[in-house]
Design a protein around this nucleic acid. Structure first.
Lengths: 220, 220
DNA sequence: CTTGCAACTGACTCTTTGGTCAGTTATATC
DNA sequence: GATATAACTGACCAAAGAGTCAGTTGCAAG
């Protein structure tokens, strides 16, 4: 921990350079399954195929594992989300594409793993929520807001509040996942993300109200 | 603990009949603040103004406190929610009323306390989630679905999937609360529930798309 | 084969905390 | 005041689990 002399060439023999990642993978599974407090460091070690002592060669504490876990996952998320935004399209096309992509990704439990952990451990690790916010939400949300604002300017969308409208766009998808995750409430026969998105997009763009010819509705 | 003779009239002297509720109140605060595992029984006792031993006079274990806590809260929730549903109205009026009422209630952190606890402790206490589902969601959701189905039959609403549409109605509100709770993301100057609901209802009923005269959109 | 060292082990310590219980206090009744 | 007993206390115990470290193992270089 003290010297870093010239002879320390990085290609030196080493039985396992991949250990830290193996530990994080093991920890991820267990933190999802049991939560942070209920997971024993010994279990993480066992699952990673090493002893508890070895874990402490790579991480100074259990909390550090949690931190590293989220840090490792957090950066790629925003990047992969942002690549679908094209601000020069009809925003409805972009929203359609992005939601379909999101739904597809959410079919894989791995996608929701990190958010789930962050949600559950906010109180114990506020810095994780901050990190997630900074690295993911603060990057993605403004882009969506800009997309909406632009859509309004260009006459595609009615004049709505971009900030609040973000919630109307993604809220249903989040709730769909959350209800299934927490309460096991889902459509018969599966999550049917495609149907959810289709149903949601219809409402989102065209509204719930029956066409003009039907009984009217004036927003008070 | 063994006899129950005739002289045991229930009005007998007793210094505190309200103790169990006091313990639950204390536990609620602490479970929200710290989560179940991080909360010590001693802390619950202290906050309830008694000693740890006294807690065990009323509850056989720490887990039993958690269980009783949710059980106590869960029944009134559905009842108070259902009183606002009137199936013979224009469903848009009903939805508007209910969402405004919900938003008002959500301004009080107490309202979200139990759901937050249930959410955080699902893995450790699956029976809590089941209880919440049975006592709250399974009572409320079907009513909303019936409201939507009826609205479609009566020509107020377009033909959508009632089950999935529930998510489009309440998802945005849930996300609004969750984002504020977890990440501190909210509109400048406060939660502005009124504005959220207004913005959401506009979209929900009339859609995001600009009026017909503008550029068109055909749902593929 | 010998040597050197990074990688690793697992028994141990120390702290925390759920749960117990022998003893104390407060109150109602006579 | 005397007595019975419900209500309560807090010191104690035992289990669990985070973190430590003296010792062991296995690989690479000469």
């Amino acid at each position: 921990m003290t010297d870093d002399s010239s002879r320390r060439v990085p290609k030196f023999r080493r039985r396992a350079e991949a250990r830290p990642d193996e530990v994080l993978d093991a920890a991820l599974d267990l933190f999802i399954e049991l939560g942070f407090t209920q997971t024993r460091v010994d279990d993480i070690a066992k699952r990673a195929g090493i002893s508890k002592g070895a874990v402490y060669l790579y991480f100074p504490s259990k909390e550090a594992i949690m931190e590293a876990l989220v840090r490792r996952a957090v950066v790629p998320i925003a990047d992969s989300a942002l690549e679908f935004f094209d601000l020069d399209q009809d925003p409805r096309l972009v929203i359609t594409m992005v939601l379909k992509m999101a739904a597809h990704r959410l079919s894989d439990p791995k996608t929701t793993a990190i958010p789930r952990i962050v949600f559950r451990e906010v109180k114990a690790f506020p810095q994780l929520a901050q990190m997630y916010r900074r690295e993911v939400l603060d990057k993605v949300i403004p882009v969506v807001e800009r997309l909406i604002a632009r859509g309004i300017d260009q006459g595609y969308l009615r004049p709505v509040d971009p900030h609040l409208t973000v919630r109307s766009i993604v809220g249903p998808l989040v709730l769909h996942v959350a209800m299934a995750e927490i309460f096991g409430i889902m459509p018969e026969g599966g999550m049917h993300f495609d149907k959810l998105i289709e149903n949601h997009l219809t409402i989102l763009f065209d509204g719930l109200s029956a066409p003009p010819s039907a009984k009217q509705w004036s927003s008070s």
